[in-house]
Design a protein around this nucleic acid. Structure first.
Lengths: 102, 102
DNA sequence: GCTGCCGATATCGACATCCGATACTATCCG
DNA sequence: CGGATAGTATCGGATGTCGATATCGGCAGC
């Protein structure tokens, strides 16, 4: 149900990472507040993959003594985000545009 | 890349199945025309799953001598579609709302 | 300092899903 | 009758997802 979520998570991550630094736990909270349940076993590998794909870069940062791995979108990440946005817009127009839902 | 697609395919299927009968090959063409590449190995199991989940019903139909399995959305399917639309709208507002797309 | 705890990140095994290729079925056409 | 065609189903490998659990580094209390 709502496998929708998978793509949405990716877009959300890129979206936020393009605006400011993010870290895993914060992202999990953010996603949850939007109704997306994502387990750590999915979130972290996803971040790693995005980084491996060159869409994010990470660096350990110490915040109040805690070490966090903070992520930021790369140029490629922003490009991918733009593409995803385009696809999302298209999908929205196609599916929502009709206004006929029955 | 663009795993976005998985959810989109589901929504597309429900969307069309809610309006008229569809069958696998037609759906494949329709999706392709929107830029989604989906292989039969994904499409047919997906249709089967949607049916198993009670969102679609199918029945074999003979068209010009060819047997097709035609699908139609059930009530639950329409409900699921409505939910997916809501999620899609939310996602679109969240991600597209900023107006910054580089 | 050592120990136990805490936020945060990483990893593990099991399971589901995706995919391309291929097989299968029934009909049409020459 | 035999090959071509449309459409659907299935197979095996690869990848992704999940929840649970392990790890890590610093801090507080002792």
């Amino acid at each position: 149900m709502r496998e929708f979520q998978r793509g949405a998570v990716r877009v959300h991550i890129l979206h936020h990472a393009a605006e400011h630094e993010i870290h895993g736990a914060w992202m999990a909270k953010e996603l949850e507040s939007h109704g997306y349940k994502i387990s750590p076993g999915t979130l972290y590998p996803t971040l790693h993959r995005l980084e491996a794909d060159g869409l994010l870069i990470s660096e350990p940062r110490v915040v109040y003594g805690r070490v966090r791995r903070v992520y930021r979108a790369t140029d490629a990440g922003r490009a991918a985000l733009a593409e995803d946005r385009k696809a999302l817009l298209e999908l929205a127009q196609e599916v929502l545009g009709h206004g006929d839902d029955r």
